[in-house]
């Protein structure tokens, strides 16, 4: 859900009879739980869908550095500053692991970054929302990382080997991220002043629905989702994950003494989960189309970092070439 609404190019999922022998053998391997590795035969649609999905996930990690990075220089204690910096640095690392996984599919990192910058590839809608207060840093860790983990834990079992291994590494490293966010809010809500608690409530009010949007609109009837699930590059439906997230998060909000901003939120004994209000999907589509509160700032920051750094990347490459030439000449 760092990757939202990834298209597969499938009109419908092929039946066994319609598959070529190669496709059928490939599907057998997936169903047997085998991992697909870079040099293995794979349908072109599988390869291209994975590039889109992993690329979008990677972009989300690096754009996701920005809203939290926004508070590194304003963190309230030296320890909070170090923890937040380490956390945002991890996001850069996760972006790097994911770009590397995508590169095994025959696309370069620079090519993916170019597509992010020209708008032809997306990143998660959530990072187009602003972090206005320190409590937002708590809310991002608690809700945004919490929602991400919901999706990333099952993806450790995804069929593509390099993606699965990247997810395993990411999940291992991310285990502290959600906790650090919740820890910020515990301090503010349970040990803080009324002003701090009000700040935390305000953060939950603003981040609740955007967090629910992270899972994407209902995809129970989506061909793309069905195809991705058949390929095991998507493990659960968006609705399943969203329900799981709400069920997990509501008691955590209660522990903090915060109110989830949904008057219709009620426990449903029959389904063993909460009934809750869907987010405003019109807002979601507006954000995806570029009209979220921070889309322009986020993209401008990424493009500036890339363009302003061109001389640096070129300078180092030129030096390496010169040094290699000198090495050859010296032999």
């Amino acid at each position: 859900m760092y990757a939202q609404m990834v298209k597969t190019e499938a009109k419908r999922v092929k039946s066994r009879e319609e598959m070529t022998p190669e496709e059928a053998a490939f599907q057998d391997r997936i169903e047997a739980g085998e991992k697909i590795e870079p040099k293995d035969w794979m349908p072109e649609g599988y390869r291209r869908t994975l590039i889109r999905q992993i690329g979008q996930h990677a972009h989300s990690e690096i754009v996701g550095q920005l809203p939290e990075g926004n508070w590194i220089t304003r963190a309230p204690t030296l320890e909070r500053k170090a923890i937040l910096l380490a956390k945002v640095q991890d996001e850069a690392g996760h972006g790097l692991y994911l770009y590397s996984a995508a590169e095994t599919l025959g696309v370069s990192r620079d090519a993916l970054i170019a597509k992010l910058h020209d708008g032809s590839m997306k990143y998660s809608s959530i990072f187009n929302y602003p972090t206005l207060t320190w409590a937002d840093i708590g809310a991002v860790g608690w809700l945004v990382d919490g929602a991400a983990i919901m999706n990333q834990v099952p993806l450790q079992r995804t069929s593509y080997g390099p993606y699965s291994r990247a997810m395993i590494r990411i999940c291992k490293e991310e285990s502290f991220h959600q906790r650090q966010g919740y820890d910020i809010l515990i301090k503010m809500c349970l040990k803080g002043t009324p002003a701090q608690k009000a700040m935390a409530q305000d953060a939950l009010n603003r981040f609740w629905y955007p967090s629910l949007m992270m899972f994407g609109p209902s995809d129970k009837d989506s061909v793309h989702s069905a195809q991705s699930m058949a390929w095991k590059i998507k493990i659960n439906t968006n609705d399943e994950l969203r329900q799981k997230f709400v069920d997990q998060t509501v008691p955590q909000a209660e522990y903090l003494g915060l109110t989830v901003p949904d008057p219709d939120l009620t426990w449903n004994e029959d389904k063993g989960g909460y009934d809750f209000t869907e987010p405003d999907w019109a807002e979601f589509y507006a954000v995806l189309a570029g009209n979220g509160p921070c889309n322009r700032e986020r993209m401008a920051a990424r493009v500036a970092a890339w363009e302003d750094g061109a001389w640096f990347r070129e300078g180092l490459m030129a030096h390496a070439r010169k040094a290699a030439k000198r090495g050859v000449a010296a032999e």
Binding site: L96, Y97, S100, R109, R313, E314, A320
Partner: peptide, 27 residues
């Protein structure tokens, strides 16, 4: 000017084999 890709192997503890951990770009 894209930096070449490198595969990284790390020995986690003394006495163990180097293990592939991932890749990165460097000049």
């Amino acid at each position: 000017s894209e930096w070449p890709l490198w595969e990284i192997f790390i020995r986690g503890q003394h006495g163990l084999n180097h293990r592939h951990v991932g890749s990165l770009h460097a000049p």
